[in-house]
């Protein structure tokens, strides 16, 4: 187990190096930063001085090493647009995005798994057909459209919920949370539905198909032949066996929720990292883009590591075999 975790962490470091290199390359692809930063009337000497000052005259691998060691320490430079350290900007925006992603993922799991179990167990009931049809809409409608519809219905027509922003937030030890205020909670509802709906339908369909698969297996037939109650068979035996793929997909989707909150955050003017990124793209704010890329890469690596470790708890066959098969 420990060897496995170490191996996975080493792989994670490699992934991060690659991501870091891509982020680093952004600086060179988008043009000469010196000519961006200096006024057009600067002299050749000024340019040269700045180049040396910024270390841009050094070979690229030295530059990359500097970039990487700064990045590890959380130093991604100064935002070109806002003139403040990128790391501070990201830390300010991180809670908003993580809270939104957390609520969206919880919603997707808490609603998606039961719906998947229900539609898997009652695959011919009319209610299952309704759920499946609706879920198709959820899968196929683009996120921004759903967000705009929700705003139209619940914010504009009914006036129940705010159409943009986070509401009031409270600082809890450097973390600004919207969970503790009424307006903060209300503000979470529409964006998290928008963000979680696709994942919800995906999880529901996944659980459903896995349930159908598992319910056909011999051990479920045998569990029924032993006279176990339907509850024990369906939830104790069948659902647990669907969990490995569900954990995999949920993990990947959690990364996707965080990374692709960009659209939802734009629609709802949610002050998270996604919105920061979109604005950075418009202004060619390279340091912010590079830092965002690295952070998202890091989140994916961490989630994958957690997912791999969860397998161990769910599936005993993956644990290291202590009592090897004995007997005949």
């Amino acid at each position: 187990m420990i060897a496995f975790v170490i191996r996975r962490m080493a792989q994670g470091v490699i992934v991060m190096l690659v991501v870091g290199f891509i982020a680093f390359s952004l600086f060179n692809f988008v043009g000469d930063p010196v000519s961006l930063m200096l006024p057009p009337e600067a002299t050749q000497a000024d340019r040269q001085a700045m180049r040396e000052n910024l270390g841009l005259d050094k070979p690229f691998y030295v530059q990359f090493a500097t970039f990487a060691s700064n990045a590890v320490q959380g130093n991604f430079g100064i935002s070109l647009r806002l003139g403040r350290p990128v790391s501070t900007l990201l830390v300010e925006r991180l809670p908003a995005t993580l809270e939104l992603a957390f609520v969206a993922a919880t919603l997707a799991l808490v609603v998606g798994i039961p719906l998947g179990v229900y539609t898997g167990l009652n695959r011919n009931s009319w209610l299952s057909r309704v759920f499946l049809t609706v879920s198709l809409i959820g899968v196929s409608l683009p996120t921004f459209l759903i967000g705009i519809f929700l705003i139209l219905i619940f914010a504009v027509w009914l006036g129940w919920l705010p159409s943009f922003g986070r509401g009031d937030t409270v600082m809890v030890g450097g973390w600004s949370t919207g969970f503790l205020t009424g307006s903060g909670l209300k503000a979470l509802i529409l964006p998290s539905i928008t963000l979680g709906l696709f994942q919800l339908t995906l999880i529901m369909r996944l659980v459903r198909s896995e349930m159908l698969e598992v319910l056909r297996t011999d051990y479920i037939k045998f569990a029924r032949a032993r006279g176990l109650t339907n509850r024990a068979v369906n939830f104790g035996h069948a659902l647990r066996n669907t969990l490995v793929p569900v954990i995999t997909i949920t993990g990947l989707q959690l990364g996707a929720i965080i990374a692709f909150a960009i659209i939802t955050e734009t629609v709802f003017q949610w002050p998270g990292m996604g919105l920061l990124f979109i604005q950075a793209v418009q202004f060619a704010d390279i340091p912010v883009m590079a830092a965002y890329l690295c952070l998202i890469g890091f989140i994916f690596v961490v989630i994958n590591l957690v997912v791999d470790m969860l397998y161990y708890f769910v599936d005993p066959r993956l644990r290291i075999d202590t009592g090897a098969a004995g007997g005949h």
């Binding site: 011999d218 045998f222 032949a225 066996n241 005993p316």
Partner: peptide, 19 residues
């Protein structure tokens, strides 16, 4: 089932829940 009529199936490799 199980109380008054027990059952044994063909494939012992797949008759038990692996988890």
């Amino acid at each position: 089932r199980g109380r008054r009529i027990g059952a044994i199936f063909q494939d012992p490799l797949t008759s038990l829940n692996p988890l």
